[in-house]
């Protein structure tokens, strides 16, 4: 235990130290507050937001968009990944299309989605889904492809049907891949939501940051970014808990 607390001490020290340097540089007029703002003003701004309460609406909207994109994107990705990994013929037909879609930089789709689905949440969710889908898809596909052939042969010899193979061999074996994709997926879902909001919306964290940028309010931009970081860290720790629960069979330390 003492070892861990020491590590934490270093981590906190680094954080506090860099904040002090930042604050000091701006206060000493070496860095311009207009461009760099200051930790103290950012903190005050955050406090102001949290007290005024307006921020919760933005947060909840971004949260709903993120969650919807995450659930739909991973659901579709895992489903289609499983299907194509186990149906090589369908894969051969669809492969060039998947590659082509994946080659599109997703940001350029945002205006199109806004045209199609309007300025509301749906266009943001759609953008998030296109980001999350491929990640979940490729990881699931790869996971299925790398199932240990001996374990597979053994399960078949023990009489497993196709659906039993899926449930007892393919899925648990792929779980590691899928879960590791979930962690990056949550990040991508946030990116989809925030970038969508940033490019055109009337609410959400991305909107907040875009608004602040529009009036050169650096403090507002940094405060928005801070909220975003905390937001992603919380989601990440939730996924981490789920991972531990599902992968309990693995040797610890790997």
């Amino acid at each position: 235990m003492p070892k861990i607390s020491k590590l934490h001490l270093y981590q906190i020290g680094l954080f506090v130290g860099s904040l002090f340097v930042w604050e000091g540089l701006v206060r000493a007029k070496i860095a311009d507050a207009f461009f760099f703002s200051m930790p103290s003003s950012i903190f005050l701004r955050l406090a102001e937001w949290l007290i005024k309460g307006d921020i919760y609406r933005h947060l909840s909207i971004t949260f709903i968009e993120t969650l919807s994109a995450f659930v739909m994107g991973t659901g579709l990705g895992i489903g289609i990944g499983l299907w194509l990994a186990l149906a090589p013929k369908a894969l051969k037909v669809l492969e060039p299309y998947i590659k082509a879609f994946n080659a599109i930089p997703r940001v350029v789709l945002a205006p199109i989605f806004t045209l199609w689905f309007g300025l509301g949440m749906i266009s943001k969710v759609a953008l998030g889904v296109t980001l999350v889908f491929f990640l979940a898809f490729f990881n699931t596909y790869q996971g299925i492809r790398e199932v240990n052939p001996v374990i597979l042969a053994n399960a078949r010899m023990l009489g497993a049907s196709r659906s039993q193979l899926l449930r007892h061999v393919y899925l648990p074996s792929t779980a590691g891949w899928i879960i590791s994709s979930l962690r990056s997926s949550i990040g991508f879902a946030v990116v989809g939501a925030v970038v969508g909001e940033y490019l055109g919306s009337s609410a959400g964290l991305g909107y907040l940051i875009a608004q602040a940028e529009g009036v050169f309010d650096t403090t507002g931009v940094f405060a928005g970014m801070t909220l975003l970081v905390v937001f992603v860290l919380i989601l990440d720790s939730v996924v981490n808990q789920v991972e531990r629960h599902i992968l309990a069979w693995r040797p610890s330390g790997t």
Binding site: V150, A155, L158, A160, Q164, H168, V169, P172, W249
Partner: peptide
């Protein structure tokens, strides 16, 4: 090794019957 690493010894032995 052909045991299912995500199942306990007991469930590994039982799996053929489960199938």
């Amino acid at each position: 090794d052909a045991l299912l690493p995500w199942k306990t010894a007991l469930d590994n032995v039982a799996i053929g019957l489960i199938f």
